[in-house]
């Protein structure tokens, strides 16, 4: 895939041969910003955060009293806001780091973060072309950062297709509904795989080519496509997009395994 993207974070701007990006102390701030049964959003205050692009991740490291450490990577859910970063953590069974972050971390606790990480699955406000975002479950997190980064800054037309099990699993539910009416040029479609809300005309089911035709962009519009979710979801959607004539080089994917970190 042709890459014209270059990482812009401090770690990669000519620091080869020196130390990599440092771990920075970070503290949860303001309580859990939003919660569903399966996911929890945390705002972290990070002194010296270098800034990031929508779609990038951060490594979060925890240290036990005996010095044991565990780190995992999380997508950043919001654009750069000074020293504040936002992550949304999906609880996974036996998730060593996610369980702590989702259920245990309180304001003032200290964790460490390192980043930003990843320079491919990113959207920049100067990218003015149409964008298709396709999310499965918590795969919406980096796509939400793109939607939030766009607000008031870019006229790029965005369409989000967001597949969830049930209405209760919609992360950022109220904000997405508000933005769908207020953010000009943003369209949002929810798909449900288990239970639909009252008044929903599409029946329960996994995403299909018809959904991508109905709620996405025609291939000849040449949108940049960002697909994020569990592996099977991403494989299905990216295959469908290629089948509908989208250029594989315009389809960026990010995958979370069903029992990922």
């Amino acid at each position: 895939m042709d890459t014209t993207t270059t990482a812009t974070h401090g770690a990669s701007s000519g620091t080869r041969g020196t130390k990599g990006p440092p771990f920075l102390a970070a503290s949860p701030s303001g309580g859990a910003a939003a919660r569903t049964a399966s996911a929890s959003t945390l705002v972290l205050e990070v002194i010296g955060w270098p800034g990031h692009l929508a779609g990038q991740h951060v490594d979060v490291r925890l240290t036990a009293p005996d010095g044991y450490q565990a780190a995992r990577s999380y997508s950043l859910a919001a654009p750069t806001d000074g020293d504040r970063i936002e992550i949304t953590v999906q609880r996974v069974p036996d998730g060593e780091v996610s369980s702590y972050l989702a259920d245990e971390a309180r304001d003032g606790d200290v964790v460490e973060v390192r980043g930003p990480v990843g320079g491919w699955f990113v959207w920049k406000p100067e990218d003015s072309g149409p964008v298709l975002l396709v999310a499965g479950g918590s795969g919406v997190v980096p796509l939400m950062a793109m939607i939030r980064s766009r607000d008031g800054v870019s006229p790029a037309p965005f369409r989000l297709i967001y597949s969830v099990r049930t209405p209760q699993d919609r992360i950022y539910d109220h904000e997405l509904r508000r933005r769908a009416t207020q953010d000009g040029g943003l369209e949002v479609a929810f798909l449900y795989t288990r239970t639909v809300p009252d008044g929903e005309t599409r029946s329960v089911g996994r995403i299909t080519a018809e959904d991508l035709i109905a709620y996405g962009w025609p291939a000849d519009v040449k949108p940049t496509c960002y697909v994020c979710g569990p592996t099977a979801f991403v494989e299905t959607v990216s295959d469908l997009l290629v089948g509908l004539g989208h250029d594989p080089a315009m389809i960026k994917t990010e995958r979370f395994g069903p029992s990922g970190p």
Partner: peptide, 18 residues
């Protein structure tokens, strides 16, 4: 250092499967 064990075989790719 910094790794954890998995029995899965996670898939990480930047684009569609060719």
């Amino acid at each position: 250092p910094g790794q954890y064990l998995t029995d899965d075989f996670p898939v990480l790719s930047a684009g569609p499967t060719p």
